[in-house]
């Protein structure tokens, strides 16, 4: 099977990996090299840079004082991370991964440096999950980089066959896809098969299918930051389900199609326009008004 055809859908990708006896990550690396823009070393180096920026964003969000441009949020990631020591209901690992995901989002909203994965609004989930699990299990940077390629392959299948934009498909397309990417990455890093990695991605999306994008004041803060925390937990849980032998009744490719169809059926008010859901609650509207006043005030530079 040709490499380019392998990325037409999930079934083709699994077929390719089986025939070549390789991981999804390896298939992704080969495809990137075959595009002819970069040699293999450069491809690996580029991903290493992404990992470094992700790790630094987690660190800043957990250790430094972070305040967002709108002054709506900041400091909550650190609070949750510290609380994780005290026997949290969600478990220490889940709690820290969720806190790390929020950390990246807070850094993002304060104009810090992040890596879109697949978007800026969902940028916390993949680093939160990968870096926390990596610390827990002593994964090397090389392993984490493999995980990023696995995640990239899953995201690419969604981008190609559905959407990864909140304006097109709602929050399911952003934080949903990010969790699916993270779930597949940790399944493959734990020795799961390509089929299992895609099953984990499928279950992750099934769990949040239809999630709307209703940002208060149109900003990437509420509910985005906490949805990144949920996305991290969703990824961990789905990875565990798959690794214990649970499968997805609906195959990955059919979940991708269903997600696209649901995204199209979501009314425009619930697709990043801030014209519905949480954005139009009395409090949501009051916050938007406050942000608008701040905008016109600081316009007098």
């Amino acid at each position: 099977m040709q490499l380019m055809e392998a990325f037409e859908n999930g079934a083709a990708l699994c077929q390719y990996c089986t025939a070549e006896n390789c991981t999804i990550a390896e298939a992704m690396i080969r495809r990137e090299v075959s595009r002819g823009e970069m040699m293999r070393d450069a491809v690996m180096e580029e991903m290493r840079k992404n990992l470094e920026v992700m790790r630094e964003a987690v660190r800043i969000g957990l250790e430094e004082h972070v305040e967002t441009v709108s002054h709506l949020s900041g400091g909550e990631a650190r609070r949750l991370f510290l609380y994780a020591k005290y026997d949290p209901f969600s478990g220490g690992n889940t709690c820290r991964a969720a806190a790390s995901a929020m950390a990246v989002c807070e850094v993002n909203s304060s104009m810090g440096r992040i890596v879109a994965a697949p978007t800026a609004g969902a940028s916390g989930i993949l680093p939160g999950v990968l870096i926390e699990c990596g610390m827990e299990r002593n994964w090397t940077d090389d392993q984490l980089i493999q995980g990023l390629f696995t995640a990239g392959a899953v995201g690419l299948l969604f981008a190609q066959n559905a959407t990864i934009s909140g304006a097109d498909g709602g929050c399911q397309a952003e934080t949903g896809v990010a969790s699916a990417m993270a779930a597949a990455a940790i399944v493959e890093l734990s020795g799961g098969s390509p089929e299992q990695a895609l099953d984990a991605a499928a279950i992750t999306i099934k769990n949040i299918m239809g999630l709307v994008c209703d940002p208060v004041a149109g900003l990437v803060e509420c509910p985005c930051i906490k949805r990144n925390a949920l996305g991290a937990a969703n990824a961990l849980l789905c990875a565990d389900m798959v690794l214990c032998g649970i499968t997805s009744l609906i195959p990955f490719d059919e979940v991708v199609s269903a997600m696209l169809q649901v995204g199209r059926d979501i009314r425009k008010e619930y697709r990043e326009t801030a014209k519905g859901g949480l954005a139009t609650t009395p409090t949501g509207k009051a916050v938007a008004e406050k942000v608008r006043r701040f905008q016109s005030y600081s316009g007098e530079y």
């Binding site: 920026v53 992040i114 990239g152 803060e221």
Partner: peptide, 16 residues
């Protein structure tokens, strides 16, 4: 798509 369209770009937040 490149894999770096999905994992990337590295950017200053908050919105691509």
């Amino acid at each position: 798509f490149s894999v770096f369209d999905i994992i990337g770009p590295r950017m200053t937040g908050p919105s691509s």
